[in-house]
């Protein structure tokens, strides 16, 4: 094998030069499928992370009927504080909400009420903290039946929808990645097949003088692996840089969104993409060699 390595390396380079456009097409399809795979993984990781951060929130937002007087609101607050499973209740009054809103849009204090149409559109909001995350759902539904509250919002609601969405995304992502993956394997296989064809005289003579089948196969196998690996490398770079750029952008603009920035995940995805490329390459080579190089 040691004596043959030079030969195998030379042949691999030569065969890639022989069909540069097909090689490029193979590399690009491998890359596209892996880029989609990479971003899907990061998106799903973020969705899971988001779901988890919402799940861990023990808070329920309860909006008080708009016509309630401040006294009635205080009564309601102390009534809820007595309920089992409630740790604390904080009141955000409609005035505070308006002020908060004014601060976020950066307008001048006095004009906000007139700016939003003369009346304060915000309701009073009670933030109810549960003692145990298990209780959040039950607590929320008993709050919903309270006539003093017109709307109850809690994390689980959103989490359920998010999970349903990621479920869909997972299947769609899987389908798209599979489609591109198959296309990549087929292209690599055509690539290798063409090189086997253009070297058929050489292969015939190699067989004649007793080169072992594995010796004949190696350059083609390595060619497929190399095409896959190059595609995988580009994909890893694109996914890595792109994700980095997205996290920076999201963190500076949508500061409330929790973004996954996990070195380990990063490394795992990169290695996974490289391996994925090599697997596609190896599969492509094997498919075409199987037919051509029988004894």
């Amino acid at each position: 094998m040691l004596n043959s390595s030079g030969y195998i390396f030379r042949e691999t380079i030569n065969s890639m030069k022989r069909n540069p456009w097909l090689s490029l097409a193979s590399v690009v399809t491998v890359m596209v499928s892996l880029v989609i795979l990479g971003y899907s993984i990061f998106f799903l990781a973020n969705a899971a992370n988001m779901a988890k951060s919402f799940e861990s929130e023990l808070e329920i937002g309860a909006f008080v009927q708009i016509e309630y007087t401040p006294e009635e609101v205080q009564d309601l607050k102390s009534q809820i504080e007595q309920m089992p499973g409630v740790e604390s209740v904080t009141l955000v009054t409609k005035e505070q909400a308006l002020e908060e809103f004014g601060r976020t849009i950066g307008g001048s204090q006095g004009n906000i009420v007139s700016d939003v149409g003369g009346t304060n559109p915000f309701p009073d909001k009670l933030t109810v903290k549960a003692t145990d995350p298990q209780n959040v759902k039950a607590l929320a539904s008993s709050l919903e039946s309270n006539p003093g509250l017109y709307k109850v919002r809690y994390g689980q609601d959103f989490v359920d929808q998010l999970l349903k969405f990621t479920q869909w995304l997972r299947w769609i992502g899987f389908g798209v990645v599979a489609a591109f993956g198959i296309a990549a394997v087929v292209l690599i296989s055509i690539n290798v097949k063409m090189n086997v064809f253009s070297r058929r005289r050489e292969i015939q003579i190699m067989k004649l003088v007793g080169a072992s089948n594995s010796f004949i196969r190696w350059p083609f196998l390595i060619e497929g692996l190399a095409l896959g690996l190059v595609g995988g490398t580009f994909a890893a770079v694109i996914v890595g840089l792109g994700y980095n750029w997205i996290t920076v952008y999201v963190q500076s603009t949508l500061t409330f969104l929790p973004v996954v920035q996990n070195e380990v995940l990063f490394r795992q995805v990169s290695i996974g993409l490289l391996l994925g490329g090599m697997v596609m390459g190896a599969l492509g080579s094997l498919f075409s060699l199987q037919k051509f190089l029988r004894a």
Partner: peptide, 11 residues
């Protein structure tokens, strides 16, 4: 030489 190279004979 090809006949020897492809069966792994030393250079």
């Amino acid at each position: 030489a090809f006949a020897l190279e492809v069966i792994g004979v030393a250079k």
